[in-house]
């Protein structure tokens, strides 16, 4: 029984990782769509919204079943707890991807101001944080999330500079107000995605060590 349970636990982690890839893909595609105005990408992200909701449900179900049937202890229990929390964060990351993709058409009428003023750079860091938090979770390798706090700070700083640049842009040229408001919102979403990556890293840390940390 214990053997079967541990096999199921391993497969649960695989499912969480797969959901992570989906969430990350949604965010990545939304950024690609933002850059390229590729309508097909927007379509893909919109479609993934249902898939990620389904995965969220399925994994939650699986966790509840494992708890009910095996009443796990210690690290096994922490793994399930970390999985339950992680899928919530992943679901939100996916949703932000969808929300970003949804505003892309509104930005179609003119070229991007200031080469998207730091948004792609911010997205790169955030995607890296998510990837590393997932590696830490999947491989139980906490070296992957070392320094995630500094990256989180870099993301915050970028968001602030994007905000200032947008303000300057809007004051200078009121026609950019609608466009810049969207940039500000996207930067806000990306920052939230970075926060979620940190929460995933915290859960991975708790799963591996039994100790709770707070990343900022």
């Amino acid at each position: 029984m214990a053997e079967k349970f541990h096999a199921e636990l391993a497969s649960l982690k695989g499912d969480v990782l797969a959901m992570g890839c989906l969430a990350q893909g949604m965010l990545h595609r939304s950024m690609e769509a933002l850059r390229t105005q590729d309508a097909a990408l927007i379509e893909l992200v919109a479609r993934d919204k249902q898939r990620i909701a389904d995965q969220d449900h399925e994994i939650e179900q699986k966790c509840l079943r494992l708890i009910a049937l095996h009443q796990p202890m210690a690290k096994d229990l922490r793994t399930i707890a970390a999985s339950l929390k992680t899928i919530t964060y992943l679901y939100r990351i996916g949703r932000y991807g969808k929300d970003i993709a949804a505003v892309v058409p509104e930005l179609a009428d003119a070229p991007h101001a200031g080469g998207l003023i730091g948004i792609p750079q911010m997205a790169d860091i955030v995607e890296g944080m998510i990837a590393d938090a997932l590696v830490a979770f999947e491989r139980e390798d906490l070296t992957a999330i070392r320094g995630i706090e500094e990256r989180e700070e870099a993301v915050d700083a970028l968001r602030y500079s994007i905000l200032r640049e947008c303000l300057a842009c809007m004051t200078e040229n009121p026609e950019t107000i609608a466009r810049c408001t969207n940039y500000i919102m996207i930067a806000r979403y990306l920052e939230r995605c970075g926060d979620h990556a940190c929460k995933i890293a915290e859960k991975a840390h708790h799963m591996v060590t039994g100790e709770r940390i707070e990343i900022r």
């Binding site: 029984m1 214990a2 349970f5 541990h6 796990p72 202890m73 210690a74 690290k75 096994d76 229990l77 922490r78 060590t209 039994g210 100790e211």
Partner: peptide, 18 residues
């Protein structure tokens, strides 16, 4: 003991890896 035991033997026992 049940959430985060200090000894590996304990962990292995309570998680059925014995």
């Amino acid at each position: 003991i049940f959430e985060d035991p200090g000894e590996e033997l304990t962990e292995n026992y309570i998680t059925g890896r014995f």
